[in-house]
């Protein structure tokens, strides 16, 4: 797990630097998803940056597309494009759009950002995998606020109906959305019971514990149900002044705050 800890720290530093440089972006939900995305790209998924269109590759769909910085940082560290390019985030003519654009950047599997849509695309990819009797897996990361979108439940129903055991959805349960606590804004709780009642296998993990995350991601291969991992996370994780504050959902740190944050990530 040591190398994952090191990579996660690098990814967090990128997130802070990118958003600081862009002076816009979403740090809170990028930081809460860092261990999840790191586990996928640096342990679990079968992907090759040299062959990003390999039909047999595993797929990752970032349904909570506003967490693009964590995905871009992982893709750059994995070698899909130069790490240097991270500093172009959200700038004109950049391939690193505010929300992921499949047709612009290698490694992006689906253009997301409009919440609730990525999970349906992931269902389609998993359905194609079943049809082709290919053994690739599809992973999809959702926000806990995002699951307020009705389309998520349409997709959840379809995934169970078509027995998409090659599909894993992860809910980044950091408990906060733009307007405040998810239970105050529009409670999606109990999240685990809802997915279970839609016919999914459900595992709850500590979303910052690599062993728990990876064990969960590797489960589900033997069942005929899609797998939902409810990852308990902290919004703004590892940056003391950002943790558990909804205000850091979509706000960039100042130059001074960037320095403070990077100090904490040494």
């Amino acid at each position: 797990m040591q190398h994952l800890e090191v990579t996660a720290k690098k990814i967090r530093r990128h997130i802070i630097e990118m958003i600081g440089t862009a002076n816009s972006g979403h740090p809170g939900g990028s930081l809460s998803a860092t261990e999840i995305v790191t586990s996928l790209y640096f342990d679990v998924m079968n992907i090759d940056p040299e062959n990003p269109a390999d039909p047999k590759r595993d797929r990752f769909v970032l349904s909570k597309g506003h967490a693009a910085p964590v995905l871009y940082a992982a893709l750059a560290e994995k070698g899909f494009f130069p790490v240097e390019e991270l500093k172009t985030l959200r700038q004109i003519n950049s391939r690193l759009q505010g929300h992921p654009a499949k047709h612009k950047l290698p490694g992006i599997e689906s253009s997301t950002g409009s919440l609730g849509q990525g999970i349906s695309t992931a269902v389609g990819m998993a359905l194609a995998g079943k049809l082709d009797q290919s053994d690739y897996r599809v992973f999809c990361l959702l926000g806990d606020g995002e699951i307020q979108e009705g389309q998520v439940w349409e997709a959840a129903m379809a995934a169970a109906h078509y027995k998409l055991s090659n599909l894993v959805a992860i809910v980044d349960n950091n408990g906060l959305q733009i307007d405040g606590s998810i239970s105050d804004v529009m409670s999606p709780n109990p999240i685990d019971k809802k997915w279970a009642s839609f016919g999914w296998e459900v595992i709850t993990v500590d979303g910052h514990d690599f062993k728990q995350i990876i064990d969960a991601l590797n489960k589900g291969k033997s069942t005929d149900k899609p797998l939902l991992i409810l990852a308990k996370t902290t919004k703004g994780k590892c940056i003391s002044f950002m943790e558990n504050l909804a205000d850091w959902h979509g706000k960039a740190p100042s130059a001074e705050q960037v320095q403070c944050a990077l100090e904490e990530l040494k």
Partner: peptide
């Protein structure tokens, strides 16, 4: 969305 994923 599923159609998009199938096409992808």
């Amino acid at each position: 969305g599923v159609a998009a994923g199938l096409a992808a």
